[in-house]
Amino acid sequence: MRSSPSSTQLVSRSTAKGRRERRRAARRRIPWWMMVPAVFLLAVLVVAPFGVSIYTSFTELNQYTLTDWLHAPWVGLANYVTALTQGNALGASALQSVGVSVAFSVLTTAIITPIGIVAALLVNKPFRGRAIVRALFLLPYVIPVFVNAIAWRLLFMNGWGLVDQVLAALHLASKNTYWLIGPNSFWAMVIADVWASWPFIYLMTLAGLQGISQELYESADMDGAGVFRSLFSITFPMLKPVLGLAVLLSTLNHFNNFTLPYIMFGTPPPPQADVLPLNVYVTSFQTFNFGLGAAMSLITLVLMMIPAVLYIRSLRLGEDMT
């Protein structure tokens, strides 16, 4: 591990050259001990559990076999079959949850992207009071997710929640729309999430806008290009890489979404809002079918690998991180 070249040891220690050589060797020597705690903890806390998770997905692990899970009965692919066909006793099947999760993450990302871009364009150029507006725009994002979920649970309460009251006053919907159960629950979750997560796109867009040279706009202006022409010919093409990354990250984050539906709907959630992580949670910790839960979480992971691989490839590891 320690790469001290043998040649330095041959040189007499008293010579100046030898001293220099030794110091250079010390400079090159990698202080591995500094890395040991992190690597050890990651191995114990992430890699090992990951392996256990794969193993248990092939076993019939439940509350009876949990204390001796190494000897839980081996059931092969049965958990995967169950996951895709029926799911746990309380909620949707994993396949249905896959649909909910994919729809949720794609839809929310599709909605927050234009909102975030518009917000960024609004505050990109300096004006009086901009600092306050920027702080205001961050507000929904910095509120803890569990607080956000509690607030929207209140807002969507049937009959007397603010949403139902406003919709009824505007004659848009009945006071008894039932946002927190049944098919509307999916939309309630989407609305609550959009309210909280659009500043992510906004922040990414702002960062991207700062990278666009002002000269581009000036020369476009000289050539007689209007505001919209500049927007579509300069701003959007220049934002494309940043936005690509933002959309990927947003899709990933939303696929991991657990806290919002868990607190908004409680458990078991309505099947229409039963996202995969929540379904895995209920399967594992409320119906105690750990083997099935593990199989479902692996299905989740495989699906997430699609945006994750795209994201990791976009990082270009080792090139910009020197």
Partner: peptide, 12 residues
């Protein structure tokens, strides 16, 4: 990118 619930289960 690993979902938390995926690690919680084996950790438990």
């Amino acid at each position: 990118t690993i979902p938390g619930v995926m690690l919680l289960l084996p950790l438990f």
